[in-house]
Amino acid sequence: MKLATINNQTRDGQLVVVNRQGTQAVKVPQVAETLQQALDNWEQAAPQLNTIYQHLNEGGVNDAFDLDMNQIMAPLPRGLQFLDGSAYLAHVERVRKARGAEMPPSFKEDPLMYQAVSDGFLAANQDIEVVSEDYGIDFEAEAAVITSDVPMHVSPEEAGQYIQLICILNDVSLRNLIPAELGKGFGFLQSKPRTALSPFFVTPDELGQAWQDHKIHLPMRTWYNGEWFGEPNCGVDMQFNFAELIAHAAKTRPLAAGCIIGSGTIANHDMAKGSTCLAEKRVLEVIEHGEASTPFMRFGDTVKIQITNDEGEDIFGTIEQKVVKYGQ
């Protein structure tokens, strides 16, 4: 099924079930007012929502309405937790190679992960507000899963059963602020502003055969200022699948329902597939030419991110954003 949140002038919005084409929706207050409420009671809520979804696709819901994408909020406008991994080692290897560093062997066994901003997510068409271009503004096309309650110390073999929804996202990064923050030895803070979530969260069955081994086996397509930028396949070169990332996150603590687990920047070893962030394109330029020639984003620049299936259907809805100067 496919779920979204529409603006009802509250912080958490109104949960709606969306048809497969992403054109019609229906409110479901009899099941849950918000997506977080549904996730908190997922075992009971999911079957009811799925029944409504089936009826909506069959045209059997009287109070369905045409979906206005301008009214769409992030499906979880504010979340309990967002843990972002770095599961694509092709990206990690290139970044380290550009600065003359080897990738530690442990990276192949122990995932990288940090705790990102979760108290507010941007809508898929919401502007990226930044104070200064000097911060090194970048987009990062990623996939993510949303969990139900996950017990502490869950095994990778068991963790997959807690994946309830899937989305794509734009993990905005301020690259020029990262080195100083990491140099403190305490992780990201100012360099990681709010992330944009896709318009729709979908259940794994919506991906059909493209969802295997807890990975999305479809290309992540990105356009920058209207031009093709990359389309690496999410299921290729993913060192740690989502079940393994969940197990890593839950090693010493349980995860509450609604936890978002990000994949990190999608990257393939096949460089012909392009990139999903400017930083990677820049490090490839450094590796090949000794210096980067591609600038980071400037005010007015745009990014478009989507995943379509083999039939051309836009599964998660499209992320389309513009960078603007904060306060103007």
Results as ranks from 00 to 15, higher is better:
residue 132 S to Q: 12
residue 121 F to H: 07
residue 133 E to Y: 09
residue 128 I to H: 04
residue 114 Y to A: 02
residue 116 A to Q: 06
residue 128 I to W: 06
residue 118 S to V: 04
residue 125 N to G: 10
residue 146 I to A: 05
residue 121 F to G: 08
residue 141 A to F: 10
residue 126 Q to D: 13
residue 149 D to I: 07
residue 120 G to I: 06
residue 132 S to A: 15
residue 131 V to N: 13
residue 118 S to Q: 01
residue 113 M to R: 12
residue 120 G to Y: 11
residue 160 G to E: 05
residue 118 S to E: 01
residue 116 A to F: 04
residue 155 S to C: 00
residue 121 F to I: 11
residue 108 K to P: 00
residue 159 A to R: 01
residue 152 M to V: 02
residue 112 L to I: 11
residue 130 V to N: 02
residue 157 E to Q: 13
residue 121 F to Y: 14
residue 116 A to C: 03
residue 110 D to P: 04
residue 158 E to F: 04
residue 111 P to S: 14
residue 111 P to Q: 04
residue 122 L to V: 06
residue 108 K to W: 06
residue 142 E to K: 13
residue 117 V to C: 05
residue 149 D to F: 10
residue 153 H to R: 07
residue 135 Y to I: 03
residue 120 G to F: 08
residue 149 D to Q: 12
residue 158 E to V: 03
residue 129 E to W: 08
residue 147 T to H: 14
residue 124 A to W: 15
residue 147 T to Y: 12
residue 144 A to T: 00
residue 114 Y to L: 08
residue 150 V to M: 10
residue 151 P to W: 07
residue 157 E to S: 00
residue 152 M to W: 00
residue 142 E to I: 13
residue 160 G to T: 04
residue 141 A to T: 00
residue 127 D to P: 15
residue 116 A to I: 01
residue 130 V to W: 00
residue 129 E to G: 08
residue 154 V to A: 03
residue 157 E to Y: 01
residue 114 Y to G: 05
residue 118 S to I: 10
residue 114 Y to W: 14
residue 122 L to W: 02
residue 147 T to M: 13
residue 143 A to R: 01
residue 119 D to H: 10
residue 123 A to D: 14
residue 150 V to F: 09
residue 126 Q to R: 11
residue 136 G to L: 01
residue 137 I to K: 09
residue 131 V to M: 10
residue 120 G to V: 01
residue 119 D to N: 15
residue 152 M to A: 05
residue 120 G to A: 10
residue 118 S to H: 09
residue 128 I to K: 01
residue 114 Y to M: 12
residue 130 V to F: 00
residue 158 E to K: 10
residue 151 P to I: 07
residue 133 E to Q: 13
residue 111 P to Y: 06
residue 133 E to V: 09
residue 112 L to A: 09
residue 154 V to H: 00
residue 116 A to W: 01
residue 118 S to T: 06
residue 122 L to P: 05
residue 145 V to A: 13
residue 108 K to Y: 13
residue 142 E to M: 14
residue 140 E to G: 12
residue 125 N to L: 14
